[in-house]
Design a protein around this nucleic acid. Sequence first.
DNA 1: AGTTCTGTTC
Length: 725
Amino acid sequence: MNACTVWSSKTRGISFFHSLLSSYNGSQNAKWPLAIFRQLLNANENPDDLTFALLIKAFASSFSSDAYSSAVTELQVSQVQTQLVRRGINQFVYVNTALLDFYMKLGLTTNARQLFEDMPCRDVVSWNALICGYSRNDYGNVALGLFVQMLREGFRPDHATIVGLAPACGRFELILQGRSLHGFGIKAGLGFDGQLKNALSSMYAKCENLEASELLFEEMSERNLVSWNSMIGAYGQNGFLEKATICFKEMLNGGLRPSPVTMMSLLSANAAPESIHCYIIKCGMTNHASVVTSLVCLYTRQGLTHMAELLYKHLPTNNLISLTAIMSSYAEKGDMKSVVEYFIQTQQLDLKLDAVALLSVLHGIINPAHFAVGRAFHAYGLKNGLTTDGLVTNGLISLYSKFDEIEAVSCLFLEMSYKPLITWNSVISGCVHAGKSSEALDFFCQMKKSGQKPDAITISSLLCGCSQLGYLRTGQTLHNYVIRNNVEMEDFTGTALIDMYTKCGRLDYAEKVFDSIIDPCLATWNSIISGYTSYGVEHKAFSGYNELQNQGLQPDKITFLGVLSACTHGGLLCEGTEYFRIMMEEYGLMPDLQHYACMVGLLGRAGLFHEAVEFINNMKIQPDSAVWISLLSACSIHQEIKLGECLANKLFFMDQRNGGFYVLMSNLYAIVGRWDDVARVRDMMRDSGGDGCSGVSCIEVTSIEDLNNNLGTNGVYLNTDTMHY
DNA sequence: AGTTCTGTTC
């Protein structure tokens, strides 16, 4: 069939046009359905309900985001709707439903809703189209609300209603609603066929209830391609690559041919990208944009950015998802230069970043030098309406708090109408991160007043704030809250508690908390080890190091920092040197500046100045002022004036802000009785505007009775009246 | 003649 046939069809009657429309399968020119319709009007034929039903179906099947810009399509659909109303066809429920569904497929939920409201009568299918449409367009809550409304108005939901709603429950991890839906289906006596079981099975998988989803899969009498794909996806999403692979092989043994979705499910399971890549080539799917996109994503996820870029260059269509994946992998490395290069590419391709893309860019801004770029992206988000997205706002809050811009954080926060828990958490942890823990506690009080309940993340951030401020009582109150409300104790909370107690002077409490944790993770071990170190209980720090390895854990850089500083404190040269060797040779961990500083201090305290200097000269990274200061500190112990003066000179030019060396130098001169020099250094210190990092003391003034009274009733209330000196 | 299940970027 071609255009000429249409043009020469003047006297063939309406049924001819109907057969033309129904033979359209979507792979031909997307403009044809409308061209046929115009031709029909030119031939003075009277379109009836069937004509419109066929036209909408053909139109819908021609639709794909690549073929049509949705703005053009929207205009054309509304023209069709006008015709439909003018000819009185809108009395037919099924035609309206077809149109409603098409609006939903275009993502035009408002048009679809208006049409639904205007419909003279509705049936179960129109309700289904509306509900499933909202569900597909990520309005899960609206879809669920309409389900209830549908019941109230006396309609009986069927098969399709449940099948359409299940994915919404899955996407938002609404396990309770999902299970109710399942229960509703059973009570309503709906037959559970393969399609319904597929929908429920993947809903359970997304809600992390893999057992339920396996059960449904196993009791299926016939498994179609979608069933297998869902199960492969279910295993993949829950981190069972092995099972996903076995499932894939079983599917092949059953004689089914994998579809593009099969490949994408395997890719999302984090399979080896190379082998799936081969399979994709063998199956001839290299031109399938979504498959290649998934492959790009997998390569980036595994850090093989270069492969992803190569693949992207050969992608049949430019797409935002691939670009987002590549940008985010650069962002993860903090390589903003490459991120911006790719951003420019998106602009040249006339692609607009979406919330996910913007969020991944924001994640990459760690370096203060890139802060201005971050603000530019904030502006981009504002201009493109992305800042209404809660996730983006959270991303911005973390961005500004990373650079201690608490005022900006407060502004962003106040502008949010709905504040979910994650937002409160972002703000609180942001303040703590910026060293403004009192503000964090203020926000926490507001949070309690607004009725929001804290979770383990909130509590951990606040505990970290208490450690910074030395607020033992507040920390204890939070500890009480953890116990009374069964906040998940292990890992984060436990670690934060131990850290708080050690930093607030109660090693004994820290030990009690540690002993109560059944299976401490590495971070928890690290915090108790560092605790022992700072209290000078070296032998316990070392036995912690041994014990964690007996539990099958591997020490990391922080563990080694703990034991190394224990050695420095205790002047244990041999042990320190050995730990340093083990760290590098047995665990392949590159020392950071702090590890180097420990070793320099250790050598210095042992009086091995020559070795210490040589050690610094052989460092793999540029030594910072802390490394030199730890040597200078050793000089004052050993009264090593000459080297000390030399170091002070060096430090003076290196790090103006760090005034610690003035103090060290003056101590050094004092020890050997060079009082003139002491006075000279003190003058220099005054001239440079203090020592640059004056200490601040603060006393916690909280009424413990108040706190406890409130604990019993509304949970925690914190009085953060504090006095700063 | 209208509705429904599986997949990609955080």
